[in-house]
Design a protein around this nucleic acid. Structure first.
Lengths: 143, 143
DNA sequence: ATCCCATTTTAGACTTAATCTAAACGCCGA
DNA sequence: TCGGCGTTTAGATTAAGTCTAAAATGGGAT
């Protein structure tokens, strides 16, 4: 259940971001604020549809896009999707250019990421993925 | 062009992994060995189809799966796919359980990942994503 | 309070990555 | 060489996400 405080806070954040306060958009942010996990767009759509049975997929994606652009929510990619392959199986990191999409290898030595990681919580870390994002040399030159 | 050395090396790696040496599978690994980038399954399929016009998508995916299971190729997820959302926009890392798929936040302080990164090559790093993968406490308990 | 209109929502078709299926094929050990 | 079983094939299917055009509406202007 959304508390009064949560509702007011969500509303304030949306006003501050100069986002039009539609009920659907509001519901998306309100749900994400109290959701403990990292819901997928589908899970969010299911929740929104409980209150707005006619809400379409596009509405949810539109809302998420607007909230993301406003810096109110964050997107996190998971591995269950478009995949790239390489035969270099030695440990290394990746740099992905946000302009041209090119992916480049980055030697492990370039970053102080540890081989063994202990984060507690009874979890067993098997591997660490580090992805750097930004502009590659070529795209940076083009302005 | 594949050199004789490359072909022999690819063949040896497949034999060592006890993988049946089909021409299509061979071509996939051979292509990945000389490909400098990080091709997608589609790009790999296009290349394979130049030599095997009747090769189907499933063949490419089967080959990649077999090579991945044998440790000869690595899969790298990119951001262009299934996305999860959260309203926590403060910097932090993620732990993803390979058994139940649950994603959990990991405080930045738990890892020595730097806020600013310099990797050279004229590239401008705008953000660093760190994803830890393994077994969560609950799944570890279930054996 | 009402009007207006740019923004947003809606329904559903469309795109694309990846998986599944069942039948035909072919690698490789005996 | 032969035969079994793993692999390939063609095409249907699933699923995430995008697109479109028409209808609805938030919120500033009057």
């Amino acid at each position: 259940m959304a508390t009064r405080e949560t509702r007011d806070n969500v509303e304030a954040r949306m006003r501050e971001a100069e986002l039009r306060l539609t009920p659907q958009r509001f519901a998306v942010l309100e749900y994400l604020t109290r959701a403990s996990g990292h819901p997928t767009a589908d899970q969010i759509a299911a929740e929104i549809n409980r209150r707005f049975p006619r809400a379409s997929r596009a509405t949810v994606y539109n809302a998420l896009k607007a909230l993301r652009d406003a810096g109110l929510v964050r997107e996190v990619a998971t591995e269950e999707a478009l995949t790239r392959y390489e035969s270099n199986v030695e440990p290394h990191h990746h740099f992905v250019c946000r302009s041209c999409g090119k992916m480049e290898d980055v030697p492990t030595g370039a970053l102080p990421a540890p081989a063994r990681v202990e984060i507690g919580g009874g979890r067993e870390v098997e591997k660490v993925e580090v992805t750097l994002r930004g502009l590659c040399g070529a795209c940076k030159g083009k302005g």
